[in-house]
Write a protein that binds this DNA or RNA. Structure first.
Lengths: 340, 340
DNA sequence: TTGAAAGCGTTACCAG
DNA sequence: CTGGTAACGCTTTCAA
């Protein structure tokens, strides 16, 4: 079962390899006609032969010769993470539309791993990178940028990097919206739980929370509790117990995992929302509608985030300027923030 | 910023490209010593130079020349699907251990899309494929197999394909366990809801259900309702209403999405589990512990499924026989099946 | 233990 | 419009 090459097709069709290459690379224009300097008759014949022989382009050869690969790499922190699982599908779809194949590889919140993953994909000649950087990811990204490969930062910002594209959520607005909702409905003792991850999205959501507390003149009540992935389960239980005791009546959770864990703990402790604690969660999930009371939550525009990141990247691959795009979150109301 | 090639390293180190190639491909043996026919001193010097120059292997060239690519493709139906999101991470980890990079691309339950995705990855010279085939995926797979590329079927079986590896769940056991649990706890009027997808895992789970109903001599009560992704929301509501009216007291849901939707409908209708309907769901999720009553569910060994599929595939790449591995599910008990 | 040289299948350049 | 041919960077004989 030898592999069919461009040469086989050329011989069979009685033309040169150049012609075959032209035909195989031709994009169809709006009329469905091949747009290349080849006689339409010849082109049709070549296409037919290629089809008949089962010709399949060898990307390795094309990539070696042209320096391009029609491949982009997407590097989230954790491919099994709910947020990225949703977004990756949109990215894939959008990229395919433009003829790009997508590589996924997760950095698992480790800077070392991010470095080695980036090395691996660069060795594979990817044309561009979409990265959700982890803490301390700067150096890995700087190395990538040195090779002049276009990079788009998704979801998490890192300042001071030159000519990278960015597609971000307006995280300040998200924090503000969530907090304002609680305050508007009569909850004034609003606190927040966050991770000590040192990523922009979390600190911006916190800024939004603080801004809302300030604007409503309840900043003296503002308080943010920090936990880590490893210790969240036990930390959260203590935080909640203590908060309820202190008369805290509202809580903003800036990620899905925090929301899920808080709800779990509250159920375990027999606490009700909004009676014992009003809640605003983050990201979409079945849990918000299946919990005893439906839970209000911030929704990110996954589809746009995915599409825009591909769009910005492909623009950059084609030599255009790096853009920064900031998208607005929306609010999905549930019973967990009902008027006091 | 010209790219550093093997030749640059050779020149700088004062050796031939052959030597550099040897050194760069050498695996370290157990003593950490390079295992190749090169003078250790020379090797060290080459390594140092490569490091200093920032040499990075060009996979396209290597792949073109050697025919291998150190890349495997994973093609689930939907990369954002909960089950595959979890498993893909294990696959990636396991593959990286053996020096393989992973391509993900979803077929989105469409045979056409599966065909084009397989074409794309084959054009990228992948060394092997892990596929969760969709309905009517046979022809796409047959085409792949013609190229002699090793293929492992994950989660869903297709019969009659020659020399493909398989890593499957014992779906009959899963259906049986779930049903038996309900029967053992006093529910005898047990029904099931499934999709009309025509994939092996669902039909095997149904076989397990039927077997359990038969073994317990309540087969006259056995009944399976079918729905589709598109119509599930409304179908399920009608099915549930009707079932409760007819005195059905137990329900087995053979996928996560069916479980989530049934719980949503039950909440909407104000039905309690197990009082109105005892439930056994599928796959792990936060929803099972956050629902008013915790929900019993079948758990798949994601980690083993992922690891084994990589293991079987790499064995095949190395020329070994295609294996079939069937893994056992486990049961996680909740309040939704409490003794009647 | 080392090196020279022949491709792998494409694309890109240049000439007709 | 068409065709010849030189790269692309690497692995892999084969010979020294």
């Amino acid at each position: 079962m030898k592999r069919i090459t461009i040469r086989d097709v050329a011989r069979e069709a009685g033309v040169s390899v150049t012609l075959v290459s032209f035909v195989m690379n031709a994009k169809r224009d709006k009329d469905g006609r091949l747009d290349c300097p080849v006689n339409p008759e010849t082109a049709k014949r070549v296409l037919a032969v290629a089809q008949r022989l089962g010709y399949r382009r060898n990307f390795a050869a094309a990539s070696l010769r042209s320096g391009r690969s029609n491949t982009i790499a997407v590097i989230p922190n954790d491919i099994s993470n709910k947020f990225f699982a949703g977004i990756s599908r949109c990215i894939e779809e959008e990229a395919n539309k433009s003829g790009y194949t997508v590589f996924f590889a997760s950095s698992e919140e480790s800077a070392d791993r991010l470095t080695s993953v980036i090395d691996a994909v660069l060795a594979h000649n990817v044309d561009g990178l979409i990265v959700a950087p982890c803490t301390n990811g700067e150096s890995a990204l700087t190395r990538a940028l040195e090779t002049k490969v276009p990079v788009v930062l998704l979801d998490r910002d890192i300042e001071g990097l030159d000519s990278v594209g960015k597609v971000l959520l307006d995280d300040v607005a998200a924090g503000q919206m969530a907090t304002q909702l609680l305050i508007d409905n009569g909850y004034r003792n609003v606190e927040m739980i966050s991770y000590t991850l040192g990523i922009s999205s979390l600190s911006e959501r916190e800024n939004g929370y603080r801004k809302a507390m300030m604007d409503n003149e309840v900043y003296d009540k503002a308080r943010v509790h920090y936990t880590t992935y490893a210790t969240a389960a036990s930390d959260i239980e203590n935080i909640i117990k203590d908060a309820v005791e202190r008369g805290v009546d509202g809580l903003f959770l800036p990620t899905y995992s925090l929301s899920a864990q808080v709800l779990t703990v509250m159920k375990k402790l027999g606490l009700k929302t909004p009676g014992d604690l009003a809640i605003v969660g983050f990201d979409e999930s079945d849990i918000y509608s299946l919990y005893e009371t439906t839970v209000s939550h911030i929704v990110q525009p996954l589809k746009e985030l995915g599409e825009k990141s591909v769009e910005v990247l492909i623009d950059m691959i084609q030599g255009k300027e790096a853009q920064t795009i900031v998208l607005k979150p929306t609010l999905k109301l549930g019973g967990s923030t009902e008027k006091k």
